[in-house]
């Protein structure tokens, strides 16, 4: 059976995919904003001695890490409004679901990075009388953030790809626009190939940058 690839309709509707891409990027950007900030706060809670702080943070992280993102998105979209009588814009729900998911993964990244600060660095601080906030601000954080950067960036682009799941709850992102276009034009192969190429074109360079950064860190550590 011969199938002739016809990209004409896709090219003609590239502006729609572009609009979808903007929505995807907006979702990714806002999710990263939540992920980077809330993730850090959760990481600090994970390290807290008081169970009141530590246990809820642990529960949140494990909930998000041990359930499919697809279910998280659907749950936020269908269950949260009913359970909490909270009816907001689907976009807000999408950002919340993806943002909290990212926060959970980033929290683990931050936590591991803080733990990776060698004990000797703390000894050096004590010997120099550097304590409290000075120690955190000038020694622990710079060290930890460097260690965490590749993980945070990787998680950040992963959420860009995961954001495709919100198409399911009718947020007009790249995936959603692609799905619409495929149905309208009866050209699913061409449409989804182009959509995949767009996701790839955004993610791949960032992935390469992460590899570069990691290689550089390895050199500096040695």
């Amino acid at each position: 059976m011969g199938y002739e690839l016809q990209f004409f309709y896709v090219w003609q509707n590239l502006d729609k995919l572009g609009q979808g891409l903007l929505v995807s990027l907006e979702l990714t950007g806002l999710a990263n904003l939540i992920g980077l900030t809330a993730g850090f706060a959760i990481a600090l809670m994970l390290r807290a001695r008081m169970p009141v702080l530590r246990l809820p943070a642990t529960a949140l992280v494990e909930l998000f890490r041990c359930t499919p993102v697809l279910i998280q998105v659907v749950w936020f979209f269908y269950c949260v409004p009913i359970l909490f009588n909270l009816f907001v814009d689907p976009m807000v729900m999408g950002v919340l679901a993806l943002g909290l998911n990212l926060a959970a993964f980033n929290a683990e990244g931050y936590r591991a990075a803080i733990q990776s600060v060698p004990r000797e660095q703390y000894d050096a601080c004590a010997a120099l009388g550097l304590g409290g906030w000075s120690r955190v601000r000038h020694v622990v954080l710079p060290h930890a953030l460097r260690a965490a950067l590749p993980v945070l960036m990787t998680n950040g682009i992963t959420i860009f790809q995961q954001s495709a799941l919100v198409a399911l709850v009718a947020i007009p992102d790249l995936m959603y626009e692609g799905k619409m276009l495929a149905t309208e034009t009866y050209r699913p192969i061409e449409t989804y190939t182009v959509v995949a190429a767009i996701y790839f074109a955004i993610s791949a360079p960032i992935s390469l940058i992460v590899q570069r950064i990691e290689a550089r860190f390895d050199r500096v550590q040695a």
Partner: peptide
């Protein structure tokens, strides 16, 4: 092991 601050 020196324990210099590597980022400074």
């Amino acid at each position: 092991h020196y324990t210099l601050f590597p980022h400074l």
